[in-house]
Amino acid sequence: MWVPQAEQISDRWHLLDNLSAVIRSYLEGYKSDIRTVCENISANEHEKLKSTLLSQKIELPDTKYSALFKKVKELQKEGKLSQRVIAKELGMNRDAVGRYFKLDAYPRNFSEPIDEKKYSSFIRKLWKNGERSAKEIWRKIKEKGYSRDYPHFYRYVQHHVKTHVDIPPLKIKYPTMNQVNRCLFLHSNERTTEESIFIEALYDKIPHLEKLRKRYFEYRNIFLSKLPDKLPTWLVSAKELSIEGLIRLVGGIERDMEAVKNAAIYELTNGQVEGQVNKLKMIKRKGYGRAKLPFLEKQMMILNEL
């Protein structure tokens, strides 16, 4: 039936979904850049973790001389006694006290003997798997031909094995395009720290992405806040981005300007009509092509009765 006084109202959900589809399509063209961003972020995080692990101070058990070093540094900090008096009080050589005065940390110059180098990977593997008894490790490498005595091996463990840091391998997580889209449309206070770093890196890598996201929220606000007069200004700003898909979308909106503006004016929506059309399409695809028109009629009658 023809209703000349009726006004056409575009469906708000489809208007927003069409713009979302443009952004998704735009991101699809930058998959390699998204992968590069993920790789760079993962590499940076791995370097930070590596630096943190390597900078951790590992305290070794005090020896006779390291304990003397601490006492010398404490007395030096107090500044009341001379090197001669400190040496006499601690029973040390004055030259040794002088050397300790110049150092910030106790020197541990235990070099790794050639014997241990042969077994270092095996020793570290045992240590990594939870074996913390130096004597048990010594017994196991003795079975493999190690010839040094236990006291020597114990010193090796103190200086080399306990101070060894295992750096985890670099792992790169590549998000799906759906995850990228979801993260992009989250507000900054809704994102995790990792997600915020990822999106900021995407802004730097992908041209116009930040502006495109801003245009999306401006467009959505036109309908949520009922501001149809802002639509022409938005169309101009959208065209300025020179994105092919966005230009096509703007052209479609301009051709149907009144219906789109009405979507920002009225509460009415054609969502019900869209729902009925979807039901019809579903019924058609379920059997109309095979069962012909009589089957479609029966399906529609059942649907109307429901």
Rank of each mutant, 00 (worst) to 15 (best):
residue 102 K to W: 01
residue 269 T to W: 03
residue 61 P to R: 02
residue 213 R to L: 10
residue 14 H to M: 11
residue 280 L to G: 02
residue 85 V to E: 15
residue 50 K to H: 08
residue 59 E to K: 10
residue 111 S to C: 00
residue 114 I to C: 09
residue 278 N to I: 08
residue 85 V to F: 12
residue 250 V to D: 00
residue 7 E to K: 04
residue 46 H to M: 07
residue 225 S to G: 02
residue 105 A to M: 00
residue 58 I to V: 10
residue 118 K to V: 04
residue 148 R to T: 09
residue 50 K to L: 05
residue 96 A to W: 09
residue 292 K to M: 14
residue 282 M to S: 13
residue 255 R to S: 13
residue 21 A to I: 11
residue 6 A to M: 06
residue 23 I to P: 05
residue 35 R to W: 03
residue 45 E to S: 07
residue 94 R to L: 07
residue 294 P to R: 06
residue 220 R to P: 01
residue 296 L to D: 13
residue 247 I to W: 02
residue 273 V to R: 04
residue 128 K to I: 10
residue 72 V to Y: 03
residue 231 L to S: 00
residue 30 Y to G: 01
residue 82 S to N: 13
residue 246 L to R: 04
residue 182 R to W: 12
residue 304 N to K: 15
residue 179 Q to W: 03
residue 289 G to N: 15
residue 100 Y to N: 02
residue 226 K to E: 12
residue 304 N to A: 15
residue 291 A to Q: 13
residue 222 I to K: 08
residue 204 D to H: 02
residue 284 K to I: 11
residue 202 L to P: 07
residue 33 D to K: 11
residue 285 R to K: 15
residue 1 M to L: 13
residue 17 D to V: 01
residue 71 K to I: 03
residue 53 L to M: 13
residue 266 Y to I: 00
residue 185 F to A: 08
residue 72 V to M: 00
residue 3 V to N: 10
residue 80 K to V: 12
residue 199 I to Y: 00
residue 10 S to W: 03
residue 225 S to Y: 15
residue 236 V to D: 12
residue 48 K to M: 08
residue 95 D to S: 15
residue 26 Y to C: 01
residue 219 Y to I: 03
residue 255 R to I: 04
residue 7 E to M: 01
residue 230 K to R: 12
residue 51 S to R: 14
residue 148 R to F: 10
residue 171 K to D: 09
residue 123 I to S: 06
residue 37 V to P: 07
residue 87 A to R: 05
residue 64 K to M: 07
residue 236 V to N: 12
residue 264 A to D: 08
residue 7 E to A: 05
residue 72 V to W: 01
residue 59 E to N: 10
residue 179 Q to S: 09
residue 158 Q to A: 06
residue 47 E to C: 00
residue 154 Y to M: 05
